[in-house]
Amino acid sequence: MPKIKYIEHTGKEHEVEVPNGWSVMEGAVKNLIPGIDADCGGACACATCHVYVDPAWLEKMPPKADMEETMLDFAQDLESNSRLSCQIKVSPELDGLVVKMPKSQH
């Protein structure tokens, strides 16, 4: 199973295994990693699953669909490496991925 490292806003790190096919958001929620709210459960409808992708991984990221792109556009503290974690599907290529959570999801 791919390993993903989640870094809380405070700097606290969590490295967990996430099944292929799940989303990066689910990997956090199912492992009780704080910092992602995911109110809509991954429907790309709430924008409370915002993360920053470690720049080293940006190239390997699956592209953003239109919906994610526009939802993100309105996220707080948007950066060029911002993503909605519910829209990143975990795959073997993402083994080792590092994402960081923002200060707040609201």
């Binding site: 924008a47 239109d66 919906m67 526009t70 939802m71 556009d73 309105f74």
Partner: peptide, 9 residues
Amino acid sequence: VNAAPEYLV
């Protein structure tokens, strides 16, 4: 409908 900016703003 498929219009996130309209919805969020």
